[in-house]
Design a protein around this nucleic acid. Structure first.
Lengths: 165, 165
DNA sequence: TATTGTTATACTCTATAACTATA
DNA sequence: TATAGTTATAGAGTATAACAATA
């Protein structure tokens, strides 16, 4: 039997933390896409944990916010704003309607569409959860300079505008 | 306490233009998580399009890079570095091995594990595709200042470090 | 013919758990 | 008893396609 030096040995810690692999990924760290992906996983995880306390997934809370901001929007418009397909919107709107956060309203002049409106409870819910998400994000960026944040927003928005060019 | 501008402050101004949904998401724009998610979709889409020309998905190319950088790593170590489960690594390693980009090598002293090594073809492939991904990213960030990029990296890495705290 | 909402289905990605062979 | 790799399965999440009602 040989003894085993095992320099790369890594104890399986249920957390799957990147700490022990700190420089195993130094090549990938050079890619902006890699850093965005890792940060995105953390942010979405925090937001998901915040939202699920009120029974939302990311898409359904985004939908509620959009409907609050744009009363009488249709499901097709909502699909476009969420960048998902119309078929996916049905389940989200079903859920929001079942919880009495929004209503589907018939439109005179075009009986194919629904005008989506938030209820009073929906608006109150939006305000409450909106603040919770904001607090969760503030914890993540605490300690960073204001100018770094705005620079990051600039970079992210620039990248988004470069889609499909 | 709040260091960021209130997104609700810029409701305002219809203006009656052709694109009705242009600022339909102005509330969500106030969330860093929303901007990261949208930018991430664009970046990952560009990277995916670049990689698939060489038959890679994001995870399989990341795996090839990691194996090139850390010869003789095991599948469990690779799983940890990729932040996925060991079961998912099997399919990725199967694919890379079938394409003769890496080899699974038996380890004397512990016959449970494989030592993963890139082949010469794997290293060449890594170099070629690495440059292609870098070019794709450079197109996305063209026009941005160097200091904005580094600030964005700082923000992203800070967020990642704040995971689960 | 085209569009809205809907339903059914498929596909991708990943996690969970059980199994084997080794330790 | 514990670990590495494997396999089978299931669950999100989303896309595709077909359909009825309406335009």
């Amino acid at each position: 039997m040989r003894s085993r030096p095992d320099p790369m040995a890594k104890i399986a810690d249920g957390g799957g933390n990147a700490d022990e692999n700190r420089d195993a990924d130094h090549s990938l760290r050079g890619f902006l896409g890699y850093n965005i992906k890792r940060a995105n996983l953390v942010v979405q995880g925090e937001i998901r944990a915040t939202l699920e306390k009120s029974g939302f997934r990311t898409a359904s809370f985004s939908a509620l916010v959009l409907i609050c901001d744009t009363p009488d929007m249709t499901q097709t418009q909502l699909a476009s704003a969420l960048s998902i397909e119309r078929s996916g919107v049905v389940l989200i709107v079903d859920d929001l309607e079942n919880r009495d956060l929004i209503t589907r309203n018939r439109v005179e002049g075009d009986r194919r569409t629904y005008a989506l409106r938030a209820t009073l409870a929906g608006i109150r819910m939006r305000d409450k959860v909106f603040a919770q998400v904001r607090d969760a994000e503030d914890r993540l960026i605490a300690g960073l300079g204001e100018d770094d944040i705005t620079a990051a927003q600039r970079v992210l928005n620039h990248i988004e505008k470069m889609a499909a060019k």
